[in-house]
């Protein structure tokens, strides 16, 4: 009993320490953001005269309204299409077991670990030749393709465990394949689909490389790409940079805190399966 109580205490202290380390960068961003713009505050020191005005200034400098809109548009482009296509393909491969399912599946698995840097160069020229540089499509279309291996993999893992009898009985009622998919399998797949949606949202929102290479205008980028541009432009003004970074973080944090349980579950499952 004594050992286990000591263990519990060590555990608690360790956890608190770990949380402190995790939160330290956020705290530092926050405190620094309150210093007068243009200064180089040393370490963690509460400013004599907290400059709350840095936040509205950064909001304006970063053009936050536009950024939010842009990121939202990109997410709206990527996530629904990826989910629909990924679910359909996962259904066909995992449940219908189309002819050649194994080969196709391997083809998709091939892309699971692909580092985006590996294809960014040809992607640039491809997007340029399609006339899509500097449009949101330059981020949306490639991301759908790049997330497809995971989406298919994820949905296949769900459908492969669906009992075949489910479809058999539906077929007896005269449902065609599409109805079978739409009316029976999609509703049953909702938990898998929503986890996938969360992961895709997060990865799209935070996508950096594609944004900085394919889109010059920060107002047409993802949040992460826009933050890169903000750093590029305001990196010389540390308090403003910190304020801007925090603002750009806020939407993700809010959504994360609202849906934290789903997030944690999705991320844990996501990495287990991927």
């Amino acid at each position: 009993m004594i050992t286990s109580r000591r263990e519990a205490w060590t555990g608690r202290v360790l956890l608190i320490f770990l949380m402190a380390v995790t939160l330290l960068p956020f705290l530092s961003l926050f405190v620094t953001a309150l210093h007068p713009s243009g200064t180089y505050p040393a370490g963690l020191a509460w400013p004599d005269d907290p400059q709350w005005g840095n936040f509205p200034r950064a909001f304006e400098a970063a053009n936050m309204g536009e950024l939010l809109k842009s990121s939202a548009l990109i997410v709206l482009g990527v996530v629904p299409i990826s989910i629909v296509l990924g679910t359909m393909a996962g259904f066909a491969i995992g449940h219908l077991r189309v002819i050649g399912a194994r080969v196709i599946f391997l083809l998709f698995v091939l892309g699971l670990t692909l580092p985006f840097e590996g294809v960014i160069t040809p992607l640039y020229y491809q997007i340029r030749d399609m006339g899509l540089l500097n449009t949101r499509w330059a981020i949306i279309l490639p991301l759908i393709g790049l997330f497809m291996p995971f989406s298919v993999f994820w949905m296949r893992a769900h459908f492969v465990n669906m009992p075949g009898e489910l479809s058999e009985s539906a077929r007896m009622d005269g449902a065609n394949v599409w109805q079978l998919f739409r009316r029976i399998h999609v509703p049953l797949a909702m938990p898998a689909i929503s986890s996938l949606g969360i992961l895709l949202f997060l990865w799209t929102w935070n996508q950096f490389l594609l944004a900085i290479v394919l889109v010059d205008d920060p107002a047409k980028r993802t949040m992460s790409g826009a933050l890169g541009a903000f750093q590029g432009q305001w990196g010389t003004d540390i308090p403003l940079l910190c304020a801007g970074s925090l603002l750009i973080l806020t939407p993700t944090l809010v959504i994360f805190l609202l849906f934290q349980r789903h997030f944690v579950k999705a991320l844990l499952q996501g990495s287990l399966k991927g």
């Binding site: 002819i99 080969v103 492969v160």
Partner: peptide, 29 residues
């Protein structure tokens, strides 16, 4: 995983996929 794969027809996937790659033949630029 579907065990009964028809080897003759499973290549279809690859054929379709490779069709998209046909454009990649000319020298870059």
């Amino acid at each position: 995983m579907a065990r009964r794969v028809h080897p003759g027809r499973s290549g279809v996937a690859v054929v379709i996929a490779m069709g998209a790659l046909a454009a990649a033949c000319a020298a870059p630029g």
